[in-house]
Amino acid sequence: MSTGLLTVSPSPHIHSELTVPQIMRGVIIAMVPALAFSIYNFGLGALYVTGLAVIFCVGIEYAIVKYLLKKPASIHDGSAIITGLLLAFNVPSNLPWYIILIGSAVAIGIGKMSFGGLGNNPFNPALVGRVFLLLSFPVPMTHWPQAGSWSLDAVTGATPLGILKDGMRAGESMDSLLNQMPSYVDIFFGFQGGSLGEMSAFALLLGLIYMLYRKIITWHIPVSMLLTVVIMTGIFWLIDPAKFANPLFHVLTGGVMLGAVFMATDYVTSPFTHRGMLIFGVGIGVLTVLIRLFGNYPEGVSFAILIMNAFVPMINRYAKEPRYGEVKQKR
């Protein structure tokens, strides 16, 4: 009859199935369509950049934890893999290896581990790495291989957003600029120039649907962010269609989709409550549109997310969910 000593612990005695490694695995699975598409689009260059970024990120985290912090290994939670993937998603597929190494070191070393590792970083590590690279290596970071070209030293070209910005500066008309672009269907499926993971809105939406289905994320951030982008650009487009591109163009090009699905929804750097998430998403949308339309850069999602990351503690402080019993009963 004896079964040895019994375990005693405070309740609850059961736990939900969803744990950190499973969530991380789910996010990685959700990234697979976008990754597969970019390999299809850019060939081995995409795989090479992604692989390097993941290896560097994981390796750097392992080294920091083991030799600097001297703590038990933390890489098995899978978050470094995601940082690596996201970093790769945000760079062109022909980036040299040393730039990837620097980006990974900044993302993991400064963006994540210097704050105490997973869960303590105020800014999205992959974006910290990306923005650091964008500011330090502007030329390699903004020269994308043409979509559909398989060789590593293919002709480089600009993104649709880049074409638009440069064209507007050169004084070309909106209509003629839009005519130079691929069709919307092509853009939707991803046949456009750009960073690794951001081209195919379709593949990213597949990932979003998967994550929503697995209840890894909620709809609040992606929907509020995309809606804000649509509404804001829509207003400007209605005011002056000759000067501003239409909302569909803005949503489908650049990093909006990638940002809405994977970057802004990062647990650690987004608000806790649904209300907070809505504020966060709207903030990112507004900033993105402002940077795109009036800023110097053709693209503003990364900056918008990083800026809103800084507001997260404040949003957490004030955007609270209603409590039970808080609202006095009317009857």
Binding site: L5, L6, T7, V8, S9, P10
Partner: peptide, 19 residues
Amino acid sequence: KKTNIYDGTESCKIAAALY
């Protein structure tokens, strides 16, 4: 001698509140 295995948070205060 131990009569059971405590598996809650490693804190005397929490264990003392439990049992």
